[in-house]
Design a protein around this nucleic acid. Structure first.
Lengths: 344, 344
DNA sequence: GGACCGATAGCAAACCTTTACTGTACGGTT
DNA sequence: AACCGTACAGTAAAGGTTTGCTATCGGTCC
């Protein structure tokens, strides 16, 4: 920059004012000379120096469980789409559901004075981990940066979220409308806040249909392919009959579908299967997965918008985005009742 | 940091040496006092100040076409996995195949003195865009940062790559081994370097089987779902008979599968379909997609490793990662010959 | 006993911007 | 004619770290 100023024959201050596009008055002639000098020298401003001064750099970190999971890549993309026009870069951090990795990422983000940290994944219920996390978040806020949660977490409700309970309840209602009375639920890991929201949605949905709750129809499993398969096995072993399986997450549903096929059970003839999230794969399986569509990209966009307004000092009410049930081939009217070991 | 030093009763320099974990000798007593002060104050070093001084920050940018594409999210994850242990953060930039967005991202990355910029997506053949890009890359290298290509591009071969031609040729060979003699190819956009590599692989594969090349069996289409569908339509309209379709990319193959189903053509009974990349969806479609597996995560990991060694000043030979044909349900022996309008 | 050495610790410059404050010139007011 | 406001340009400080160089001190070696 010093060079640019020298070449343009002006002071560094003036050059800075031209480059930085401030509203400080600079005569047209000077401005042109500076711009030309900058072009000739292929000058690119040093974001670090600028950031050091402002104690903030135009970067937003998005903490996800796994960028490879379509749910998260979609959210990250939403954040990026909203951030790019403002010149922000986005750092994606895959914590792999390890609160240790998560903390270490948040620390790094704090250390580099990211303008915002957006948590896309559900928080983990771990007091000791959350204590350190809380310290970091306080530090980040103190620095004037924004913190946004897109999912329920230890410190409360998300700033921008998706109405998980309503979504699951709607799916349960859709299954009930088809005639199902024994609807099983493969829930997520108990330590995950979203998982409990979704479980609550299931309970609410079941209650709304007037069916009595059957505890054996609820099994917990991890939020991945293996979890879905394990969930199916657990349900069959449980002995309580069911005609439909509602999964807390699409990836689980995929696993369930696969496991059912291995067991020779037909979907939806023998059992209906529903997922949640509507990741892009859902439409491509055989049969295509019925699921609940979440406005993930929009979630990301709003998350960033929320961060920006937080940076501007505004205080805003939390938003809750609506979901939509998508019916595809994997669900149908109930036929037979499942019991231990297969068809009754 | 000044505070930490004051609290520990030492100079800033000493505190820095303790925090920075340099090999400069500091007595154990002092070191302990500094560490304790840092903990008490919840001190987190300012990466911007550090970066300003070193003219480099522990961040690596990965330029992709779309983070939502499983191909790229997998590569990014590989980079991240390799980068995290070294304390590097990774910025994912979705250029959406726009060379303008790409340039703007690269400029931002240069402006923030990212330690490395890794290009995961194929370069675009656009001279004027590449001129500016080249200037930026030169600037980045001049700054002591690394530049790594994971795909062929305007400036030559990738530092770490995947053997695209060999992969496609192997798939063509597999189809030929099943008895196919009329193998169509849905190629990618002509402006994309990978696309031409894969086309070359197809040509090589076809030549190896001794079948004469039929120009009408090669159609160009975009690297997305719609491209695959359009490719199928173009092939059928082309009038040249074929018993198998080899796609330059899985996502295209998915589109082709969908289009063929709409047209009432059975896979693989009426026509075999093969993809390329082995994204995770490939195993879940009906029928499951035969494809060529690429070590994407490994590609990302090696890309980062390459960057690190570049930063250390080493000059290394380019690497080429092997691929593997994965046979699933979507291909089988040829039955009937396709012509304009459907089955012959 | 004095030169010298190794182990520590401190000083201060440098990294590159931004911005509050100061200075200058000029046209217009009273 | 003294004064004032406006439009521009420059000076210098500050932001948080790293690091080359210098300083101190207790000992070691002839």
């Amino acid at each position: 920059m010093t060079e640019v100023a020298r070449r343009a024959g002006v002071s560094i201050a003036t050059a800075s004012r031209v480059i930085g596009a401030t509203d400080y008055p600079v005569s047209l002639a000077t401005r042109t000379r500076v711009l030309e000098a900058a072009r000739a020298l292929d000058y690119v401003p040093n974001a670090l120096a600028r950031g050091l001064l402002k104690s903030q750099i135009a970067v937003v970190g998005v903490v996800v469980h796994d960028i490879t999971d379509p749910y998260f890549s979609e959210v990250v993309r939403g954040v990026e789409d909203a951030a790019a026009p403002d010149g922000y870069l986005v750092i994606a951090c895959s914590s792999d559901r390890s609160s240790e990795r998560e903390r270490s990422y948040v620390r790094l983000l704090r250390s580099m004075r990211a303008a915002a940290v957006i948590f896309a994944g559900s928080g983990i219920d771990d007091p000791v981990a959350n204590e350190e996390l809380g310290r970091h978040l306080a530090g980040i806020r103190e620095n004037g940066s924004a913190v946004v949660h897109l999912s329920p977490h230890a410190f409360g409700a998300p700033q921008v979220g998706v109405d998980n309970p309503a979504g699951i309840a709607a799916m349960v209602a859709a299954l009930a409308a088809l005639g199902h009375r024994q609807i099983a639920f493969i829930a997520g890991p108990t330590a995950l806040y979203v998982a409990s929201e979704r479980l609550a949605g299931y309970r609410r949905g079941v209650a709304a249909t007037g069916i009595g709750a059957e505890p054996r129809l609820i099994v917990h499993a991890s939020f991945d392919r293996g979890g879905g398969a394990a969930g199916v096995d657990a349900l069959l072993a449980g002995g309580a009959p069911f005609t439909a399986i509602c999964c807390a997450n699409d990836v689980q549903a995929l696993g369930a579908l696969q496991r059912l096929a291995e067991l020779g059970l037909r979907v939806p003839d023998d059992v209906s299967v529903a997922g949640f999230d509507d990741i892009s794969v859902a439409a491509l399986t055989a049969p295509a997965l019925s699921t609940v569509q979440l406005p993930l990209r929009e979630l990301g966009r709003r998350g960033f918008a929320h961060a920006v307004r937080q940076l501007a000092g505004e205080t805003l009410a939390p938003e809750l985005l609506p979901t939509q049930v998508v019916i595809r081939g994997s669900i149908g009217p109930p036929r037979v009742v499942m019991t231990r070991g297969g068809r009754a």
